[in-house]
Design a protein around this nucleic acid. Sequence first.
DNA 1: TAGCCCAAATTAATCGTTTGCGTTATTATG
DNA 2: CATAATAACGCAAACGATTAATTTGGGCTA
Lengths: 357, 357
Amino acid sequence: MLINNTAVSRRMNFNPITIRDIAKALGISVSTVSKALRDSYEISDKTKKLVNDYAEQNNYRPNPIAQSLKKGHSKSIGIVVSTIENQFFSQVINGIESVAYQAGFNVIITQTHESYEMELKNVEQLTHHALDGLLISLSTETKDVSHLKHLHQQGLPIVFFDRITNEIETHKVIADNFKGGYDATRQLLNAGYKKIAHITSPPNISITSERFAGYEHALKEVGMDIPSAYIKHCAHGGRDMSEIENALNELLSLKDKPDAIFTTSDRITTTTLYLLTKMGIKIPDDIALVGYTNTTLADVLNPPLTSVYQPAFEMGRKAAEMLLSLILSKHPVTEFETITLPTQLFVRRSTLPKKAL
Amino acid sequence: MLINNTAVSRRMNFNPITIRDIAKALGISVSTVSKALRDSYEISDKTKKLVNDYAEQNNYRPNPIAQSLKKGHSKSIGIVVSTIENQFFSQVINGIESVAYQAGFNVIITQTHESYEMELKNVEQLTHHALDGLLISLSTETKDVSHLKHLHQQGLPIVFFDRITNEIETHKVIADNFKGGYDATRQLLNAGYKKIAHITSPPNISITSERFAGYEHALKEVGMDIPSAYIKHCAHGGRDMSEIENALNELLSLKDKPDAIFTTSDRITTTTLYLLTKMGIKIPDDIALVGYTNTTLADVLNPPLTSVYQPAFEMGRKAAEMLLSLILSKHPVTEFETITLPTQLFVRRSTLPKKAL
DNA sequence: TAGCCCAAATTAATCGTTTGCGTTATTATG
DNA sequence: CATAATAACGCAAACGATTAATTTGGGCTA
């Protein structure tokens, strides 16, 4: 009876039972209910049972908003990535999730689609909602990180992963991009390719320059210099197919055409493969291809694709662990570290040695 | 001076300025500040300017938690999908995002990884945090939807997409699964294949039975009956490779081996392709393959994969629009609709007509 | 029986905002 | 000049949960 009454007295909206309802129904005070539910020593077992039973029967759930307001934290962390369609990022997110949920945190995912403006909006959005911490991989367009600096100064824990900045001192997790670039290039060199082009993201983001450094080092090691006409930057990291189409067309119209291409990022890699195929260019016969990608499909592509694989899940785990340590730390943290995770080169048919062709 | 003082007086934690701080600094009341910020007619322009200037200079942000508590809503919606690694779902999410953000809502994404237990946990998690509405595609394991029924009865707006239930009356968005299954099967039949196996998810989820019905109809239409040994259900929708491996092994050890396979779900499709390739089975020569997938890579797979493409982005948009209409509705909604979106069959080399082989 | 202790419960303040209503001045009206 | 109207602002009660401080009512001891 009573139950029904309290039930109908609420709005039609999603409006669950509160501790006040319980208190009223049981004829005791609100604080007694609260303490009983939290199993306080101040409350008798009899009352506790009474309260708990009633709460259970009426499917009571503490209002998380009220708890957050009171406790001063929201138990949720924000994630900013370029796009979850990229398998690399969805795997990172899986890693983040696995540790966040363990710790009772939930995650809010946002995507920049490689746009600086979207990054601003998302960070704004996220901090407009209550956030205990932020995990971010910068957008391709991002050159200015003052939006993040402000938040960081205000005390919001931030951990960077993948695409980082050195303008903000905090924990960071990256893959060994230098080695990834080196391994990929070295593999092409070993297979006999001598004219190695590089299609990549803009140089302002960290991964681009690091991978380029690896590429450069491998070439220099064998005494080759870097032909600037072979280096192509896609303004939006290959978001638009036309970026890559243009890059390829330019490369292919060179007098001295490349005999191999090293691509970075999932999107650039798979789109390059798609376009070359569409153009009727044989891989690796006409042009060899090695690319960064985390797709599980590399083995069944045509041809199977030599690729640099990044430990995305692990990166997510590590980043989340570091963020949680920042959030949960009693004292302000002043010592930060940057973790570098190894990458793995999977050699497949797209970089078949030249002599074997 | 004052600014600095208020700044240092706060905790080291992320603890931004409040309206109380503004009131104190300006020597006016909290309510005046609040009203000034909300541009109330009760406040003079002079005071408004004073408050707004101070707020801007000190980078004031209203605490969203407090606002949510007061206003009774959180401006965020929850999403439950099986896994964002599946391109179909990440595209759906992009669609959802595009309308949610437009309306000032943010989204919280959770993954079930096809587990009923995880679905329970996620729904619990989500509603533990403050939610204005829920978008959900059921997990493969889910047979009981009482956890959702409760929430729905309590008044939480819910919209189902993709994998729906008819036990709960609300808005739903699905693809035309019957036609998808029919088209795929029909394509195989037209290409001359006669022994068509079907690897799919468990029959309890809606998409499975709907697609099966299409498959069945196509076969019956040409007077063929459905050989039960050709129907394989993967308990977790292909989450574990072994599920698919077993299914394939059973199919291939049949006296009367199938000459074609119709797979549903991204995961099952790509894994089947991978396994057949690894087994050295030629597609389509030995076995033809048509599958559900939303990967952009279908064209560059080996062989290019005939596939049923679902309008994932559009599905996300529609679902989000319906949810928002539910959330924003002044009156309780009693009329619900189920939208069915068309699918598209892309014919590629993996179902090359038999005579052409 | 006074004095004290302890268990068990209540009161009230708090988190940051919002908002109905009351309180001042100041201006307009008869 | 007295009164009504209005503009501009403050007070205090919410929203739901937590918790320090306080009260209440026994029970026990000296």
